[in-house]
Amino acid sequence: MTQPAMDVSAGAPTRSYPLYLRDIAGVAAILVAGAAGYWLFPDNLALLTRIIAVALLVLSLDLITGYCGVASLGQATLFGAGAYAVGFACVHGGVTEPLTLMLIGAVAGATAGLAMGAIMLRAHGLAQLVLSIAIVQLGHEAANKFTGYTGGSDGLAGLSVNPLFGVFEFDLWGRTAYLFGLALLVVVFALLRVVVSSPFGVLCRGVRQDPVRVKAMGAFVFPVILKMFVISGAVAGLGGALAAISTQVVGLDSISFELSANALVMLVLGGLGTLYGALVGTVIFMAFEHVVSAINPFHWLTMVGALLVAVVLVAPGGLVNLAGKVGGIGRSKGSKP
């Protein structure tokens, strides 16, 4: 059963000021950070766009892991489903309108989320984790072997996308892609805030804390979590679609165990069960990766490993909760590392 030690992110803080103020501040913070990135690193917009795409993946993982308590090491399946769906539609289907492509990515991700949730929710604990790994590996093998459609290990190249709204062309420096991604992230983030603070979101948190009790209160657990899987799939699919459109290529790494594991690391680094944690974790992790792995990939691996161990020992609630605790503004948490 769920243990109190995990209960570091129980959400819904009680505060004197209305919650939406915090959300407005959060959205404003994302916009400011995004604009700062745009002005400070004009040569690295491709990397920043990649960060946004991965941030969507990590947000989607947060929905099922942080809010529903379903640990997954296969979340990249949904990301890859979105990316490859966009790739197929664009290269083989001749769809070039960017917003239609995003919609295709979201639908493909949601469909994959439905299938993945239906399979994963059959098991619990370790078996569930293994199922998630097996699913992403199966997807990876499929993408690798059906070279006629996916390009195999060379990737599915040659996506040519029309200008956004017919006006803004996806330029070489990735300005359009970045700003489009930023807008997408803000919209998705705002929608997800609504979702997780809705009765449905609160019910999901209830399932995470004590599924038996939720059942006893008369709610059906399976459809609730499955619904969250679908939402999560749509978000991850959008991330994959953004990655595909901005880089104009869909690589095998978009549906891989490594990406799934990294997403989980980012999420836990930032903090489970808070959408802010997912964003903070993604940005910190990918920025560090960019700097350190350029020096030596194995040093990077050692560092991530040490970081993970440290997070588990020192801050099992992630950096967001740690900052809250240090700053004295968070609730007192029941966790003992």
Partner: peptide, 18 residues
């Protein structure tokens, strides 16, 4: 909780590889 165990042991794995 399993998630913490998974994370720490993945961390150890990364360290060992590096």
């Amino acid at each position: 909780p399993e998630l913490l165990q998974v994370l720490m042991t993945i961390g150890i794995t990364f360290c060992v590889i590096g």
